[in-house]
Nucleic acid binder design. Structure first.
Lengths: 133, 133
DNA sequence: TATTGTTATACTCTATAACTATA
DNA sequence: TATAGTTATAGAGTATAACAATA
């Protein structure tokens, strides 16, 4: 049972999380220990914003800062046991939600839907890239 | 040419708009003059937040507050000529973007994509409703 | 009593700019 | 010189709570 809507807001609040902090936890779960500038790029925010989010997550005992082997300027953000457990739960929830949403589709319909969506996304990306030129 | 990405951020900035203010302009364009509590519900924010957004849009000469005929507690938020022009531009952009994204799809593929998407959305809504119970 | 919108207050998020340490 | 991350500062957005006017 993966939570969404008001339910998710409540669950995040109980964990001392906010949407932005949860997004960082999610990215870190997908990428493993990374320096902060990687998170800044992934989340499309400034390094300053990452500093604040990591500060909050350290205070919640979800992540820690560790030295980066090979670059003493950088700090590796890594999960605490509690943070790793949370990230694993998020991934389980994502997989279960995907099953709920897509498993009921007949294979043929799922195939067509997937191709159609890929086309829409490709045209959207092209449109954005053209505008940025 | 409807703007997205960094381009949109730039264009919004030139209009003195922010994403939240643009969302209110969009809702108002879809609904016509409405009291603030309707916008609060539509945008899923508190009445306090709407007060601040409307204040900013009034300062930008995009909307005005008018008395609500029939309920003297309420204020109707209405477009200024400049705001109405902006809302019309947003709607034209939305329509053009929809053509860019969907017109290239063969009718059969579009049909299948639309049915698949409707199913996914229905299951997502059911999932959220079940969790909120 | 309930609803509409406001003021008061506080917190989160984010940006820009200046800075330190390191590459 | 360039990069990683921090501190300082400021602004937008939002929530909660208390309030006034009206229903």
């Amino acid at each position: 049972m993966f939570l969404l809507g008001d339910d998710a807001d409540r669950a995040l609040g109980e964990l001392g999380l906010t949407p932005s902090r949860a997004a960082l936890v999610w990215e870190l779960g997908q990428r493993g220990p990374v320096p902060q500038h990687v998170l800044a790029t992934a989340l499309r925010v400034t390094p300053r914003a990452v500093t604040g989010l990591v500060d909050a997550l350290v205070a919640s005992d979800l992540v820690t800062r560790a030295p980066h082997p090979g670059d003493r300027r950088a700090t590796l953000v890594t999960f605490t046991p509690r943070g790793a457990e949370l990230a694993a739960g998020l991934e389980r929830g994502r997989a279960e939600l995907a099953r709920t949403l897509f498993a009921p589709m007949p294979a043929e319909e799922l195939d067509c839907f997937g191709r159609g969506l890929a086309g829409v996304i490709a045209r959207l990306r092209a449109h954005i890239a053209a505008g940025a030129a």
